[in-house]
Amino acid sequence: MKIWSISNQKGGVGKTTSVVSLGGLLADQGHRVLLVDLDPHGSLTSYFGQDPDGLERSLYHLFFEQRWRNVDYIRDTLKPTSLPNVSMLPATTSLATLERQVSGQDGMGLVLARSLAQLWDDYDYALLDTPPILGVLLVNALAACQQLVIPTQTEHLALKGLERMVHTLKMVMKSQKRELPYTIVPTLFDRRTSASLTSLKEMRRTYQGALWDEAIPVDTRLRDASHEGIFPHQLDPNTRGVRAYRHLLAQLSGEKR
């Protein structure tokens, strides 16, 4: 199983859209994909028609009574999506209380890694949709993943979020004594606005080497797909947003270096 975390300590930068788009394209290539919602807001969970306030089981429940050891429990927690080879580990709003509940307990940053170890042979890829807050859930994602994708909106304030994310990443790598490769992905790019052009230029100047050399454009078809609760490529495989994500996937999976 390959595990990619899609993370940024700023909201509204396209994390959930990136998880869904990349997950759908991986499934389209025939891979078995698991999407994991670590955000108490439950955007990914809602995307596929599940209610984060109404579900009886979610990622939250794996943190207690060592349920992460119980593969049957984990499998029973998964929910279907609009594609048969893609499942989702949903979030519930109770995740917002997790920080307080596990406070002081060592090793709580490894629960997701251990849960995914139980599903190792069930899936080819796991994509993690993380909250925009530094806390136990984001640390779990960074500890479990083998590669980090940092979507960053091409606007000035998002650059601050990117800076914080890279700083957090460096500290987690130091704590774990390992290197974690990361790719910065410019998102919501609108070539008509000077804000997009200026911030993209700034990203290229500061993060040369870690920055993907293309950008995900603003595309209303991506939003339309979320309204339908289907993967963007199912709605329109040739929309410019999907085409851009296809290029990104080739880069992340090593087909294009």
Partner: peptide, 17 residues
């Protein structure tokens, strides 16, 4: 600030066993 965060990460990422 970094000291505090490093302690936080070490606590979350270290198991007692």
């Amino acid at each position: 600030n970094t000291d505090v965060l490093m302690g936080y990460f070490d606590s979350l990422l270290t198991t007692v066993d």
